[in-house]
């Protein structure tokens, strides 16, 4: 099977000169490595995006069962709908409130674990295992923990003479309940990524700072925090993806309620598409979400792009 596969040009790791490539008949063969991946990428990512963008300018719901062009009607409808704005508020609240504290604590724990020699695996796994638990299972566990009468949390609260809380059943606490649970689930994953990042930090820097008399906190503030910048960027991206696509726990724990207080964008898309059968609105929401995600991508890469090598050289 190796016959016919052309010999690799020398120094494949470095860019070839364009001249060489033009001369070589194999330049089109190079695409062959990409074709299968590209095919699925286009089929399940870019084609859908184009399709839903088109659909978002169509009326398509229970009362008009065939897609019909309607201009920006769907977007106008959303603009004038309170629930849409509540959902957007909830989504951004969820993202900001859950991401930054999780990232910060993840880094702190990563540093603490990195400094330990004994029991590393124990610490890593005890923080990391929730990541492995399927969100559906975690949701069930936490529904039980949050349950108003039999749930651990309320039992503990009443042991201390505090009033029981409604948790998932109250619009004041429902989104917080989801955030706490998501924090529990993501903390270990972020911690592990930071721990991987810390392996690259030069230990001698700490020695030098120690000799200069810098305390633990100052040492890390001055050395670790700046040095894990690229890792933080990576964690940030992962965190944004994970929190923007939040769905499972909402579907299983609150169904967006009470009164849409825990409804976020992906769940709202699902609701409009599969519950209310308004595919036009659901597509418009998809378009909005895609634009937000692309904007965040551009923002992140624009702000910090130089730090990570994302361009092909």
């Amino acid at each position: 099977m190796l016959k016919g596969v052309p010999i690799l040009p020398r120094g494949g790791g470095t860019p070839h000169s364009l001249k060489l490539m033009k001369e070589s008949p194999e330049k089109y063969r190079n695409y062959m490595f990409l074709v299968p991946g590209m095919f699925f990428l286009l089929l399940f990512t870019y084609l859908p995006i184009m399709w839903s963008t088109w659909l978002s300018f169509n009326r398509w719901n229970l009362l008009s069962p065939q897609p019909k062009w309607c201009g920006v009607e769907n977007f106008l409808k959303l603009w004038n709908h309170d629930v849409f704005w509540l959902v957007m508020k909830n989504s951004f609240f969820f993202v900001t409130v859950s991401i930054f504290p999780t990232m910060f604590l993840a880094l702190v724990f990563a540093i603490l674990i990195d400094e330990r020699v004994k029991g590393r695996v124990y610490y890593i796994y005890s923080l990391f295992y929730p990541t492995l638990i399927p969100m559906a299972a975690a949701a069930m566990l936490w529904v039980y923990i949050y349950s108003p009468n039999l749930g651990v949390l309320n039992i503990v609260l009443s042991k201390f003479g505090l009033p029981k809380l409604g948790w998932l059943g109250s619009s004041q606490t429902s989104i917080w309940a989801l955030i706490i649970m998501t924090f529990w689930k993501n903390l270990g994953f972020f911690m592990l990524i930071y721990l991987a990042g810390l392996q690259n930090v030069n230990r001698e820097l700490y020695e030098a700072a120690y000799i200069d008399g810098a305390g633990w906190w100052r040492r890390h503030l001055a050395i670790t925090f700046p040095l894990v910048g690229p890792t933080s960027l990576f964690v940030l991206i992962v965190a944004i993806i994970l929190t923007f696509r939040v769905f499972d726990q909402i579907h299983l724990m609150t169904e967006g309620g009470p009164g849409n207080s825990s409804n976020v964008i992906v769940y709202y898309i699902y609701e409009n598409g599969f519950k209310f059968f308004d595919w036009g609105i659901a597509s418009a929401l998809t378009t909005i979400l895609v634009v937000i995600l692309l904007f965040l991508t551009l923002l992140i890469f624009g702000l910090f792009g130089k730090r990570i090598t994302y361009t092909a050289d």
Binding site: I49, L55, T297
Partner: peptide
């Protein structure tokens, strides 16, 4: 195109993917 896909998880484009 590959990198951008990282930011567009399936969950965010569930409607058209379902149709496809």
């Amino acid at each position: 195109l590959f990198v951008i896909q990282i930011m567009l998880p399936l969950e965010s484009i569930i409607i058209p993917n379902y149709l496809i």
